[in-house]
């Protein structure tokens, strides 16, 4: 027994040394690179694995717009916006991308929006024809998979409202974005509310057995589907210069993206290790504007109107109390955007 213990102790020491040496080795091999980039400040960025979330960032990384600003981008993948905001709060990332559904949290003071990303058209409600869901009205009494707190919940609320229904008229199954796909394909649910590329995956797998019941375009006039870049409250004040530089790098990437949609799609596919075609299919998921267009919308008040309308929609959907509404300028940092655009 004593011999066994000594052997195991020896193995333990070897493992520990291997553990230590592996980290040391990687440090040495990256040494020259680090020496070269020693003035770069690392910014951890929370993203979702889709084109809309990654295009500007990846374009900036590939074209060197962040490095020009002295920034090294470190990407961290998340499934949805609310999780990204929670991660900002816990300090594991510095900035993050959120879809429309998670915007209720910045309004409630849990994050600040430092850059507008795009008006999206990625969210859809999809019905399973074989389960008798062919129209919005068929949703009554059906089981629907949804990721609560995200744009998935938002598009579902709008869709149900159009049919004169509420969430009490259906059976909701709260799932993460990936499980929603599995649930739909396996026939465990009758309909789903989710976003691209999950929507594409479902349609590709189920073909004519599914039908798109609604998408963001359908409600564009009354509910702008805004995606934004956020930081935790107070971060912008403490890191004003850094945030401005980051935003500048992001906007330059955004401009490159607008002119090179397909090329950036390939870069995104490479980054998240998926089939390039599946990312190319997502290039229609949003309205890809340039920095100049963004500044124009800030100046004429269009952007502020989007966010204002978004607050009203949240109140209407019951996700935000009326007393929680506040001036858009309190949580959307227009100044940062304008300075970065200069």
């Amino acid at each position: 027994m004593k011999r066994l213990v000594s052997w195991l102790a020896a193995i333990l020491v070897v493992f520990s040394l291997v553990g230590c040496s592996s980290s040391t080795t990687s440090g040495t091999s990256d040494g020259k690179e680090k020496e070269k980039d020693k003035k770069l400040t690392t910014v951890s960025v929370g993203y979702m694995p889709n084109y809309a979330s990654l295009n500007s960032i990846v374009a900036g990384m590939k074209t060197g717009t962040f490095k020009e600003q002295g920034i090294e981008v470190k990407l961290v993948e998340f499934a949805d916006g609310p999780t990204i905001i929670a991660a900002l709060e816990s300090g594991s990332i510095d900035v993050g991308y959120i879809g429309p559904g998670a915007h209720v949290l910045p309004i409630q003071g849990q994050a600040e929006i430092f850059a507008f990303s795009q008006l999206g058209n990625a969210d859809e409600v999809i019905g399973n024809v074989k389960k008798g869901v062919k129209t919005i009205q068929d949703l009554k009494g059906k089981t629907i998979a949804v990721a609560t707190g995200t744009s998935s919940e938002q598009i579902l609320t709008l869709t149900l409202a159009e049919a004169g229904l509420t969430t009490k008229d259906v059976k909701l199954m709260n799932m993460d974005a990936s499980a929603i796909v599995t649930a739909m394909i396996s026939g465990s649910v009758d309909a789903v509310a989710t976003w691209s590329p999950n929507t594409n995956a479902i349609k590709k797998e189920m073909g004519d057995d599914v039908v798109m019941l609604s998408n963001n375009k359908r409600y564009a006039d009354k509910s702008p589907s805004i995606a934004s870049w956020v930081v935790k409250p107070g971060y912008a004040d403490q890191n004003k210069d850094l945030l401005e530089k980051f935003t500048r790098g992001l906007f330059k990437g955004m401009d490159y993206r607008t002119d090179h949609l397909d090329e950036v799609a390939k870069w995104v596919a490479e980054e998240i290790a998926v089939d390039p075609k599946s990312v190319l299919d997502q290039t229609g998921d949003g309205e890809w504007i340039t920095t100049a267009e963004l500044v124009k919308r800030i100046d004429d008040g269009t952007l502020e109107a989007y966010y204002q309308k978004q607050q009203e929609n949240f109140v209407e959907a019951g996700r935000l109390k009326k007393e929680e509404m506040r001036p858009v300028s309190e949580y959307v940092l227009f100044d940062n955007m304008k300075k970065a655009a200069q």
Partner: peptide, 29 residues
């Protein structure tokens, strides 16, 4: 999620990879 201000600790890297490795090896032994 977001029921209270408690972050997302489950998703945080509690330890570094070598530290995790050490714990796993110690546990196996």
């Amino acid at each position: 999620l977001y029921s209270y201000r408690n972050g997302i600790y489950y998703l945080d890297s509690v330890l570094s990879v070598p530290a995790y490795l050490l714990i796993v090896v110690v546990n196996v032994i």
